[in-house]
Computed example of a mutant assay.
Amino acid sequence: MGLPWDFRTIAGERVTLDLLRDDDLEALFEMQSDPEVCRYMLSEPRTRERVAEVRERDAAATRLEKTGDYVQPAIRDASGALVGTLYFHLTSVDDRTAEIGWALLRREQGKGYAREAAALMIDAAFGEIGLHRVYAELDPRNEASVALCLRLGMRHEGHFVEHMWSKGEWTDTGIYAVLEREWTARTTG
């Protein structure tokens, strides 16, 4: 297994995964304060001060070594502008499992950036880090994220009804996942 794994810039055809920078604050604030972007997330829209705190914390998360470690790189377009963020959380070293998630500025949604960014990270998860399983937990009402999971070749594994109390209501949780052998067969087949 490739742990510990230090995050490095990962470039794709149209997007690059890169560490968060100080100059990302305005775009992050635009994204994380937008009620539509935050609708299916666990957090409420954030203040500028809270976004600055979270950016500083997440920018420092650069290594996957033990259960609970995470990276949250910026998703950048060809010009280098931040269009969103990717979340990658090592949930079990023993089981070689991680959770993936994404968020994009509303004006950048629907352009394929999240798909390419997630695919780059899943490639690294299986090819470099040596993981066995990558999964996404999401609110099944988030049709765009469900569709993205399916486009990535993730299978629907579960639907937990009224699984958590979030933002004043009981919400369901959907689980989508892909195994290393499935990803490898899909990308080489």
Rank of each mutant, 00 (worst) to 15 (best):
L86N: 01
R107Q: 11
A98E: 10
T91D: 08
T97Y: 00
A78Y: 05
G80I: 11
G101F: 05
Y87R: 12
R96G: 01
Q109P: 08
R106K: 15
D95C: 11
I100Q: 04
V83R: 13
L105R: 07
T97W: 00
W102T: 03
G110D: 12
L105H: 02
A98R: 05
Y87N: 15
A81G: 10
S79R: 14
L104R: 00
T91Q: 05
E99Q: 02
G110A: 11
H89G: 05
S92T: 09
R106T: 08
R106M: 07
L86W: 01
L82I: 12
E108L: 06
A81R: 14
W102L: 01
L86G: 01
Y87K: 10
R106F: 09
S92N: 09
E108C: 15
R106E: 11
G80T: 11
A78C: 07
E99H: 01
H89V: 14
V93W: 02
D77T: 04
L82V: 08
D94P: 06
T91S: 13
E99S: 00
D77I: 05
L90Y: 05
R106I: 07
F88A: 03
T91G: 02
Q109I: 10
A78E: 15
E108W: 11
L105N: 02
L82H: 05
L90G: 06
L82K: 02
A78I: 12
A78H: 11
R107V: 13
L86I: 06
H89F: 13
R106A: 14
Q109E: 15
A103Q: 03
A98D: 08
T97H: 04
G84P: 02
A78V: 14
D95Y: 08
R106Y: 09
F88N: 01
W102H: 03
A103K: 02
A78K: 14
Y87M: 12
A103W: 00
L90H: 08
D77Y: 03
H89S: 05
T97F: 01
R106G: 06
E108N: 13
R96F: 05
G101W: 04
I100E: 08
T97M: 08
T97C: 13
T91F: 02
T85L: 05
E108M: 15
G84T: 01
E108I: 06
D95N: 13
H89P: 00
G84E: 01
G80C: 10
R107N: 08
I100C: 11
L90D: 05
G110K: 10
E108Q: 15
T85P: 02
L105T: 04
I100Y: 10
D77E: 10
D94F: 07
S79G: 13
A98H: 06
Y87D: 15
S92V: 07
R96Y: 04
L86F: 04
A78L: 14
L82D: 06
E108R: 15
Y87P: 00
I100G: 07
E99L: 00
V83P: 07
Y87V: 14
R107G: 04
A98T: 10
D94K: 10
G110C: 12
F88V: 05
A98S: 10
V93Q: 02
A81Y: 04
L82W: 04
L90F: 07
E108G: 04
Q109W: 11
A81C: 11
Q109H: 10
S79N: 11
S79L: 11
E99Y: 00
G84Q: 01
T85Y: 01
T97D: 03
L105D: 02
Y87E: 09
A81M: 09
L105S: 02
E108P: 03
T97E: 12
